[in-house]
Simulated assay, not measured.
Amino acid sequence: MAVKRFLLLASLALLAAFLLTGCSARPGAGETAAAAADAALALDLPALTIDIDADGVPSIAGAPLSSFASLAPGLTDFRLGSDLVAQLMEANIQHIQIATVPDGLRILVNGAALPSLRWDEERLANLSDLVDLLGPAVPSVVKAALPLISDVGVGVTLRFPLAQGADVIPLQAEGAATAPAAREAVLAQIGKAPVIRIPVVYDMEGNYTVQGITDAEWQALTGAPFGQLKLDAELVKNAVAAGVRTATVRTDAEGIHIALNDKELPVLGWGEGELLNLVKLAADAGMLQGAGMDADALVGLLEALLPVIEVSDVSIHVTFPAQ
């Protein structure tokens, strides 16, 4: 038994040392260690770098993931299709980074930050309450990991083959740092941020009213397909059974806020220009091409509109029927 334990520990040590040879700088590295200086548990590690070849086969430091089947069987199942890799290469997507930091989860594509999750202690506590509310619908590992997530700084970097003739994009590219200034310029021009509040009340059949006007009446008044906002009756029933009384979706300069039963959950943040990065990435990938649509003109239009969208205070407050 002692020999087996020694071999297991030795194997894990060798694996850790080997994996570290396949690591790269992690966005936000050092932040977790600084924030968790007094915590009993703290992990602040470089990003694990996984290289994907043209066939979608992943490897670490030149060794296929299948090499680690005995030590990390979950990793060996990871593989991408060759068609997907070809699409990523055509879009010149060279790397994707995902990393945890004390206040959220960061996602970068080609070094540019995209909208990603932001949280604080209160929002994480509310998320834990929601997990408890959902009960067995949430895996036990998620319940166990939530209280520790702020003290764990880890990440993974996926690197893809370069398209022929493409210039190498560094892992840390400059983002749209002018986003706050652009929002301030918009506010100076329009005076006050636009405010939109919409209260929606659903019944058990999934029908809704807004200020007493039904979905069919709204559709008749406006010609817009508001009937599509009707919810499935089973979804409403499940929400009510789970104890969900209200749900609010709100946007502001920080990002998209979601609250259940008036408890704020982690925010999908866009406060530092992440929306503009997303638009530019979509344009570079050819996703904005359409019939009669000029991608450059569309990017310019969206770039002008995004600060207005970001400063707008828009909220939809949904009330579900009592159980």
Rank of each mutant, 00 (worst) to 15 (best):
A54G: 06
P170Y: 11
L80R: 03
V267Q: 03
E272H: 06
C23H: 07
A285C: 12
L45P: 02
V308R: 06
L229V: 02
K280P: 02
G290W: 09
T209L: 14
A144T: 08
V240I: 08
I169H: 02
D232W: 06
I196Q: 14
P180R: 06
A125L: 14
S59W: 09
L229H: 01
G269H: 02
G111F: 10
L88Y: 01
Q189L: 13
I96M: 12
I198R: 15
L301V: 13
L275G: 08
D232H: 02
G165Q: 10
R79F: 00
L281N: 00
R197W: 12
V57S: 09
I196K: 12
T222E: 08
A16C: 07
G81A: 00
M287L: 15
E217F: 09
A37L: 10
A188T: 02
E121D: 15
L133F: 01
L71I: 01
A33K: 11
L305Y: 10
L43P: 00
D215Y: 09
A220D: 09
G292E: 05
V141C: 08
G28T: 01
A163V: 04
I50S: 03
A13I: 13
A13K: 12
S82D: 10
L268S: 09
D296T: 06
P321H: 07
P46M: 01
E234G: 10
V318E: 06
P180I: 07
G30W: 12
L108Q: 04
E254V: 09
E121M: 07
Q228A: 12
A2E: 12
P161T: 00
I256A: 04
L20T: 03
A166M: 07
V236W: 08
S312D: 03
L265F: 03
A163N: 05
F78M: 10
D53W: 14
V142T: 09
A33W: 10
S11E: 12
A29D: 09
P46A: 00
P136D: 06
W218D: 03
E234K: 14
G165C: 11
D38A: 13
S82P: 04
T251V: 02
I149A: 10
V85I: 14
M293D: 02
L20E: 08
P136M: 01
G153M: 08
S67L: 14
A304Q: 12
M89R: 11
E184V: 08
L306T: 05
T209E: 15
E122G: 05
G292M: 05
L43W: 02
N207T: 02
V109T: 02
G74A: 11
V279Q: 06
K192Q: 15
A181L: 12
V195S: 14
M89S: 06
G62K: 03
L80K: 03
L114M: 13
A173C: 12
L158M: 05
I107L: 15
K230D: 04
R183Y: 02
A137F: 12
D44I: 01
G81I: 00
A163R: 11
T251M: 04
A99D: 00
Q164S: 14
R183Q: 11
A177M: 11
D51I: 04
S11V: 11
A285W: 14
V279C: 07
D151Q: 14
L275H: 05
T319Q: 10
D151E: 11
A166L: 06
L231M: 15
L108Y: 05
A113V: 05
G81D: 05
D252Y: 00
G271W: 09
Q211C: 08
